[in-house]
Nucleic acid binder design. Structure first.
Lengths: 135, 135
DNA sequence: TATATTCCTATTGACTTAGTATGTAAATAG
DNA sequence: CTATTTACATACTAAGTCAATAGGAATATA
């Protein structure tokens, strides 16, 4: 399941995209609009800043701002940044140890195909498309 | 992520399909072939029996047996039986309370489309197809 | 009656998740 | 240069989930 953190992150990105101007947008505003606690949003925005999806500025007049155009973000990267790599089974995670059954595992091709499907779905949709509803 | 329980359940179903004869197959055999502890397999097989995907017989000569032909099982029903309904976000679970943001939630269509994709994928593949590799 | 087998209830330990508390650093305004 | 506003950082907690085990009861066959 997509975690709350990733879902909130998406809403934050949408919020920032929809209030894009020259000014930085303070966390307080996002929190008020999205009805998510400031404290929890902080942890999410820290991830987004660390991953360079948004930039933050401190002090008066500070806040957050997108680093790219909404059309240049994929939904997939936002999800992966906040909750780690998308993989349907543990043996397909990047850091998984090689499975001894790998060679004749009947289910492996199923998981591979599923992962590809999911990956394609999320990485082919842009933040802009999500907002426009054109996907 | 697909849980271990569901993955094991799939392997059990495959094992039963591959050793289909007139006789019941004891858990011990499945455990040995699949290298999964008997105790843990018990809990999984109990679910499968409860869901009528397999039938069990106690006592000497007992064991487990499929109730249908492998072509009459979908992968989706095996997964859903063992780990509950497939839904990518909590607000789309069958017993979820109606979300107040539902009407103008920009992300909802995304989750709906994703759920449909995943559902179709798993429910359109049969156990037989999985074993044959024809999916 | 002895044995093999499934069925049932409860429990454990490790891990993850959502969310909070408390404090530090930096930018601007006056 | 001081106060205020804001982001940044670390640590913690409580609840829940997951994988796995323990110990026994029921049932079928020989």
């Amino acid at each position: 399941m997509i975690s709350t953190k990733a879902r909130y992150a998406l809403r934050v990105m949408i919020d920032l995209a929809q209030h894009q101007e020259d000014a930085y947008i303070p966390l307080k505003d996002i929190s008020a609009r999205q009805e998510i606690s400031e404290k929890y949003l902080e942890t999410i925005l820290r991830l987004l800043v660390k991953g360079k999806l948004v930039k933050g500025l401190r002090g008066k007049g500070g806040g957050y701002m997108l680093t790219r155009k909404p059309s240049d973000y994929s939904i997939g990267e936002i999800i992966e940044l906040t909750e780690g790599p998308i993989a349907c089974v543990s043996c397909r995670l990047p850091d998984a140890q090689s499975c001894p059954r790998k060679e004749d595992c009947i289910t492996l091709p199923l998981w591979e195909k599923y992962d590809a499907l999911v990956h394609d779905f999320f990485f082919q949709i842009s933040l802009e498309a999500l907002i426009e509803g054109s996907f």
